[in-house]
Amino acid sequence: MSQRARGRAALGAEEATWSRAVGRVVVALAVALVLFQAVGLVRDGERLRGLVRGQPAPALRLPTLAGPPFSLEQWRGRVVLLEFWATWCPPCREKLALLERLQDELGARGLQAVTIEIEGNRERVSQLVGEQAERRRRGGLAASAVVYAIGTDTVAEAYRVQTIPQLVVIGRRGEVRHVQVGGGGEDELRQQVAQALMASAPAGGGSGAGATR
């Protein structure tokens, strides 16, 4: 082999080495990018823990329309059905009636329905609840045991509410059991509430008066 040919061969080998090195760097960068994204997704997942099934529901303490402030802690031992709603939302108002029916039917078994208006519109809530109470009175029903809490956008933020109505079923131990978004789905909701009531029924089968920590 001539000297020139040997020189060309050496150059070719060097180029191949460089190509392999560049290839390795590109692969390493791609792997690093994927890992970075994966870590970001895990962190986001942690931030969404408020709505992860089985995780503790974010703590709440909110003023109510009538009576003392509502706190999730006070209902520990009961199944809590939360509805996040706004006064201008017709499907939300339909859900209010559903919550009152569920409370009437299942309150004695340990259900506590709580509605949380997320825009702090106390006057309008008062008006709507008054109308609902009047309908109940005309129908021969006693006053509803549903709690009407008044929240703001921090409540929606805590529970990752992006669409209303949003319903959250919270088990007797304070864990998120089910999240339902939008109108409809009464059968599914009833099934989930029934499962929550059965899954963690207190010994003795009582109504499970809320124990405070």
């Binding site: 942690e46 931030r47 823990r49 408020g50 974010p58 703590a59 709440l60 303490r61 909110l62 003023p63 402030p69 509502f70 809490a149 008044i150 929240g151 921090t154 409540v155 933020e157 805590a158």
Partner: peptide, 9 residues
């Protein structure tokens, strides 16, 4: 007048 709190991470 009336206040509450919410839990966040």
């Amino acid at each position: 007048r009336s206040a509450g709190y919410t839990e966040h991470v």
